[in-house]
């Protein structure tokens, strides 16, 4: 059987910005694959093209055999995603957000309730299930986003900086649950993160991307050998340089925008 994610010479241009500049890689079924890179490297843009949210400028894509631009719903029925940016309905309760998701993915009622309880307990929101999301803190919202993404069990799970802003205990909990799904159901995991020890700990393979190009790809061991470093963090800095990158706009801007709109 071929790889479950296949990317060949993928490109995305925004005007003169080459956000993704000709990348190729593939991910095997059941693999835990980390996509690492500094802010603005092109990670989210790549995920958006893989998940039918953006049209590629050029290149070839396959998601479980489906081309997202020709057969978007074929691709969509094979993946789940936890977005980097907020995507909950604030005017609904935690539970209602999950039920909505369950309906979109046509999960049977019994199974849906069972999984909802399990996941809300994993992310420690079970006793807040009937509260409106707008009353949640940033971290609670993040946890709910993750729980929602894990509700239907797809073939591929995309996680775009899923654990950002969460405390170590919660991150640990959540990753345990994800890895369990990976083992028991063979769900392929494709994730990005800025926590290098997280990637080192859970990923079977790692790709490092910068300025829209893949710099290197391989197991953590191979990367350490190539860079002659002791841990992934040092290897990462050796590969992408020490320069500080602009804080990525989208998330922060989005939060500001939210606040502005709320105030009206």
């Amino acid at each position: 059987m071929g790889p479950i994610i296949e990317v060949k010479n993928l490109q995305k241009h925004f005007g003169s910005i080459k956000a993704v500049d000709g990348i190729s890689f593939s991910v095997k079924k059941g693999e835990v694959f980390a996509f690492l890179g500094p802010n603005g490297a092109g990670k989210s843009t790549t995920i958006k093209m893989l998940t039918t949210m953006l049209k590629a400028t050029a290149g070839e894509l396959r998601i479980a055999g489906h081309n997202p631009s020709i057969d978007p719903n074929g691709a969509r029925s094979n993946f789940g995603i936890v977005f980097q940016d907020p995507s909950l309905d604030d005017e609904l309760t935690a539970k209602e957000n999950l039920l909505f998701h369950g309906a979109l993915y046509d999960i049977k009622k019994g199974l849906l309730n069972e999984r909802m309880e399990k996941l809300l307990k994993v992310v420690e929101l079970w006793d807040r299930k009937n509260d409106l999301v707008k009353q949640f803190s940033g971290g609670m919202k993040r946890r709910l986003e993750i729980a929602r993404g894990l509700l239907h069990h797809p073939k591929i799970l995309f996680l775009d900086e899923p654990t950002i802003g969460l405390d170590p205990q919660t991150r640990h909990h959540i990753w345990n649950h994800i890895l369990e799904l990976n083992k028991s159901e063979g769900i392929t995991i494709f994730f990005t993160t800025h926590y290098m020890e997280e990637a080192e700990h859970v990923a079977d393979r790692v790709a490092v991307i910068d300025h829209g190009r893949i710099i290197t790809i391989g197991t953590t061991k191979e990367l350490l050998k190539r860079t002659k470093k002791k841990d992934l963090e040092s290897a990462f800095i050796a590969l992408t340089g020490k320069g500080i990158r602009e804080e990525e706009g989208s998330f922060i801007q989005n939060m500001r925008l939210r606040r502005r709109v709320m105030r009206r």
Partner: peptide, 18 residues
């Protein structure tokens, strides 16, 4: 438009439904 700005639109648009 609100759904788009608050991000909720993404949740519906990546779902495998027409």
């Amino acid at each position: 438009i609100w759904d788009k700005q608050f991000g909720f639109l993404k949740e519906t648009l990546v779902a495998p439904v027409s």
